[in-house]
Design a protein around this nucleic acid. Sequence first.
RNA 1: GGGGCUAUAGCUCAGUUGGCUAGAGCGCAGCAUUCACAUUGCUGAGGCCCAUGGUUCGAGUCCAUGUAGCCCCACCA
Length: 852
Amino acid sequence: MKLAKTYQPELYEADIYALWEKSGVFAPTEQGEPYSLVVPPPNANGNLHMGHALSFAMQDIAARYHRLKGERVAFIPGADHAGFETQVVFERELEKQGKSRFDYSRESLYEQIYNFVEQNKENFQTQIRKLGASVDWTSYTFTLDDSIVKQAYATFKKMWDENLIYRGERLVNFCTKHGTAFADIEVSYQEEQGKLWKIRYPLSDGSGEIVVATTRPETMLGDTAVAVHPKDNRYVGMVGKTIKLPLTNREIPIIADEYVDIAYGTGAVKITPAHDQNDFEIGQRHDLPSISVIGFDGKLVHSVGDRFRGLSVLEGRESVINALKESGYLVGEEELTHSVGHCYKCGTVIEPLLKEQWFIDIKPLAQTALESIREGEIDFLPESKRTQLERYLENIKDWNISRQIVWGIPIPAFQNEEDPADWIYDERVNQEVITVNNKHYRRDPDVFDTWFSSSSWPYATLGFPDNQAFKDFYPLSLMESGFDLLYPWLSRMIMLGLYVTGEIPFKKVYLHGMITDEQGRKMSKSIGNVTDPMEAIAKFGSDALRIGIVSGQTPGNNQPYVEAKVIGGRNFINKLWNIARYLEGNIESFEDKSVEAYSAIDNWILNRLSTTRNSYQKNMDSYRFSEAYELIYHFIWDDLADWYVEASKSEPNKPLLVSLLKASLVMIHPFAPFVSETIWQTLVLNQDSLLINHPLIDLPKGDRVQSDRFDSIKSLILEIRSLIKATGAAKVKLYYRNEPLVASFATLINQLGGTISVEDGEPGQGVALVASGFSCWLDIDQEAIDHYVTRLEKLISEEQKRTRSLHDRLNNPKYIEQAPENLVSESRAQLNESEQTLENLLDEKMRFSPRQ
RNA sequence: GGGGCUAUAGCUCAGUUGGCUAGAGCGCAGCAUUCACAUUGCUGAGGCCCAUGGUUCGAGUCCAUGUAGCCCCACCA
């Protein structure tokens, strides 16, 4: 035997993957309907987590299935430079060596990170192979590849020319530890306990005062107004007057703005345009100056006398409070809960700081995207994500694409050294200073937000606009991703795709939920509940992991990682393996031969296959992979292994067995690629052939009458088994009378039913098998009769219930009138059958307890 | 405040456009075991499908309200 007793994945997986890769089957074929999907690029520097495993599994199932259907599948892998993420990891490495990013020049740092990523790149590529992902490695793309950079520049240029790019001094979300700004959606907000201080602001003319409430007293040094609501009677006479700002004695105006909530706090708000988004907007409306109090290092830059400057924000806050207390301006403080933005990486409080940045005027792009989405050009699974995306796009804000890090694509913009307002687009980013028209321009030191380049992924990887791949495979057939990327990535791919190519980037979006631990908690290093997919593969095999995470999977819902399901997958794989072993030991030739059905069970299994095959395809086509898997699982385990193989042991129909195995292997292949290909290769089912690109197999349908005969024999066998177990009888004989079907299946019934013999006999012997409707008797011993009667009573009560409910249904004239005819006639047939069974059961009971 | 999701067996979850006796895996109970497979086979127990109301011949499925839990966005002076 070539097949070992149990399937040991570690012996085969690497070789099988290498075989596929070497034979070039991952690349698209020349013929067939195009089917395309591009992998959401994982961080080139990281390890794959369970979410990646799920995502790759879903995509690979789709890709493999469409290959089996004979389509030309483009399944494109890639990696993301993950700008900020990676730089943070690298900075941690530097920290360990007692160094910091500021010890190196920009160029040197870039090079070091580049090498760092290169070294680790192989790691994650190996992991993708271990997952069995059938990606076309020849089209592998990295987000810093020249082609991608060129795309990013082309897109930026197009926006620049069309005035969709602007540079503005805006409030940006700044992490003072990492020294970079973030987009709004990258800020992570947390509820926190804080304090609301009330501060007295005296009017300059001495006619009174206004009390303002604030959670950030340190920013008062940069106040440039106090705002009240125009309809607030308390302050209506003060609007237009000025206030003498405590501590600095600067005079600032009292303004009226609808933004102020009369009911909140004191109804008066200090306005600090340099450190608060709403204040900034009010400042713009009222033409207020902005005074920065906090620097990019998170230290106060403002001083009163020699106080405050150089203090951290928190120290400054305390210091300002003390100063206000000393001078009697602080009139109250209370506790409050508010949400505070943090750096999603290091937890540092995000400071809104004024900074010149590049922005994309995103509204026109969002509008186009909205129209496409509303018109249903993209299918969403689950559908509810469409609505969510629409809401997001309706309220979208301009996109800050500048990042103050080195690990990324340099922004191709240069600033006139003499005229700061004069910016030009130029791609000579490897030069710090360029000369154009005798003027010197200095390169913007910033790089693009990683999402800016990765949002071009669908068309950039395919080589927009001229590559054949783009023409053949755009828009993509499928985009599979975690739902957490709906806003940061999916929305932007749709916007940029439409903007650049004029077409949606993908036709279908499948969004999976997050993988949690078994208690539904997020996997996190600090809780210690993380399961590494590579460990799971080492323990149970790649196929088992795939089955474990895909079965029961539905779009949009979080799912726990349940090891028992992976074990279930492993067990199933072993079952499949052992079916193959059985065939290996009993069949001489695995060549294709024409299939003929001789027996009732041959016809039965062919019908089971055909039914399974149809539903399988329906479910696979609609991305209901879990349903499809369950179908094959039951076909292979229950129908094929437990019934067909068992029943055919005495007289095996060998060509049919071979065909059934082949058909099963093809269908299960997307779910269990390694074991199915291993069996295919080991049994040399066909020299030179690979399972991975074998077409789905259709066998002839079985004869209905023949097939039904086996179904009734099967239910007889089930009844025998059940009865023997229920009565506890041992060594029982089955008798039948005038039952040619039973007679012809006598050997099989005896073998599978667990009797000691099946023979023609006199009616009245033993107890009757009424449920399956044959005139058969089991000669159970006397002690077992009591159990038998109990069981009969249970069956009778169940059957009565059923008869009653069928009666009720058919006695309802509206049901007869309005329900479809086939349902009504089906109900009638069921009632007949049920009444017959009930009668038999009652008769049988009378025989044993006639007095009742 | 706005939007979205979830509630089905002890656990984790399926359940296509409403259709008749609601499924799976694991777990549990019992029985078996020289057979391709103990990563096994066989039998079985276990469910007011969150609640109430509605639509319908018919509701786990559709609608409304409520309860409980979760997520996202906005606000938070």
